[in-house]
Design a protein around this nucleic acid. Structure first.
Lengths: 276, 276
DNA sequence: TAGCAACCTTGATGGCGATCAATATTCGGC
DNA sequence: GCCGAATATTGATCGCCATCAAGGTTGCTA
């Protein structure tokens, strides 16, 4: 439980990382800045100590003073909307937190660390000022928002149309790709979230998450041990997410099978004869 | 069916509407501009003739040259994603089309008129240049995107968690509010969309849309005649959207009822003993 | 190492809503 | 106003998945 010494220690570490040397630079806001501008950008970034699992980075409805960028670990955003609580977003390293509160300057949801995490804190007023002077930064901000807008809409759009197994396949592919883009393995990663959190995000029951993950494992699409995940057959998962009717053979690792059964005695399982 | 004369006629009309006198000004991009800046903004806006129902304003994947603002009528955005087609957005007067393509400069979905419609066309490069010079415009652009981002996430988030009747209640409340904010009646409006389009947007089958709307009517929440809708009991719809367990009496207009039944012989119907 | 709490898995049941199918209704064109 | 096509309603069936319930596992604290 991160005592004071611990905090100071980490703060020291954090201060070492100039934007110039940050491994996430190519994904982050200053990606298009030249050296001189990068220096100015780096000057406004604050790097608070590390956050423990579960700690609150922003409270729903509280004034928004800064944008955050995840530097390590991962965060979740939770909104209480219409009576029920729901998990509206996961944030991985390099992703921007707070874009959805720039107009009201309030946090539309609480932000918590899913695991030990470090962030960069970019005060909004400084960013605003700097964006006025640096066209490249402004453009990047627009791009980030536009991209988020499109990806969100697409992803959520998927979810509203998909069955439980399709949603999970979609999430797995998404995570795989997001991790990959950040330099991590696309085929092995750790769920930093509980089954319940996954369910809340996808709009399905925790029990169903558990069952479907088990099913995927049986079908040789993934291996899952606790929160550790190995993606064994990404194409099949993508195909599943896409809603293709997918026929797999058990117990051999799954693959896209021809429309007709190859052997009369093969054990056949049909996945996602989904509703739509 | 809009012959050439008609087009010219409407084009003439359209050209008359300087941003200064536009009834949507307070909702639109230039809402924070002073007179001098408004003049400059107005100068970059193009106002093409009116579009007939069903006409294509932008093709999915095509280069994005302009943002659109709906001036009258309504539009839909359709994306072909993962094999299946889905309706990703409805646009009402005053709403901005194209924010989700600003980074790739391509349209992420096809845009079509749901009914006869007029728009303003704001060339992206001109807007970009102008935004560089007018801080108020820049701020407004950020605000619009941020707001859209938040509202989208919330709305879609709702949908992924809601049952069919809750989704429809949510949509009705949404439309009611959006119309109201634009100066139209909050209690009576026209669906410019088919049942199938509603279903595609909400992620439910056309038949279910039809059934639930009928059910709402029976329960006295709405009156619906073809595509004309009267909202009779907005609070009840909101409550339903929120997921409250709602008990209504038939055939009297519905209201929030006390937890216990008021009369043993009253006909009881229970709405949305929804899954979550 | 023991014990407890949080988390996860697995089973049984019932309701919601997709799908298929068959009309009914509305709308646009002549 | 009449006809054909698109759209909407209504009915019947069945599978997915939420919910309730009961263990099982993991991980943290003492």
């Amino acid at each position: 439980m991160a005592d004071h010494n611990d905090l100071l220690q980490r703060r020291g570490d954090a201060d070492d990382v100039h934007c110039r040397h940050c491994s996430l630079r190519s994904l982050c806001l200053p990606q298009a800045l030249d050296d001189r501008d990068l220096e100015r950008f780096n000057a406004i970034v604050r790097r608070p100590g590390h956050f423990k699992k579960g700690s609150l980075l922003a409270r729903e409805g509280a004034p928004l003073h800064s944008l955050f960028v995840v530097r390590s670990g991962s965060l979740k955003q939770v909104s209480h909307t219409g009576g029920r609580e729901q998990l509206t977003r996961f944030f991985l390293p390099g992703e921007l937190v707070g874009l959805d509160g720039l107009d009201t300057l309030r946090h539309p949801g609480s932000v918590r660390a899913l695991e030990a995490a470090t962030i960069c804190d970019i005060p909004y007023t400084s960013l605003d000022t700097l964006a006025e002077q640096l066209p490249a930064l402004r453009t990047q901000l627009f791009r980030s928002m536009s991209r988020t807008l499109r990806e969100d809409r697409l992803l959520m759009g998927h979810f509203t149309h998909q069955s439980a197994d399709q949603r999970l396949a979609t999430l797995l592919c998404e995570l795989s790709e997001r991790f990959h883009r950040r330099g991590y393995s696309a085929h092995r990663f750790r769920f930093s979230k509980s089954r319940a959190e996954i369910g809340s995000y996808l709009g399905i029951a925790m029990e169903t998450v558990s069952r479907v993950l088990g099913q995927f494992q049986q079908q040789g699409l993934i291996t899952i041990r606790g929160r550790e995940v190995w993606i064994l057959d990404l194409p099949a998962l993508e195909s599943l997410a896409r809603g293709d009717r997918l026929t797999v053979l058990i117990p051999t690792p799954s693959r896209l099978a021809p429309p007709a059964r190859t052997s009369p005695d093969a054990q056949i399982a049909t996945l996602s004869l989904a509703n739509h």
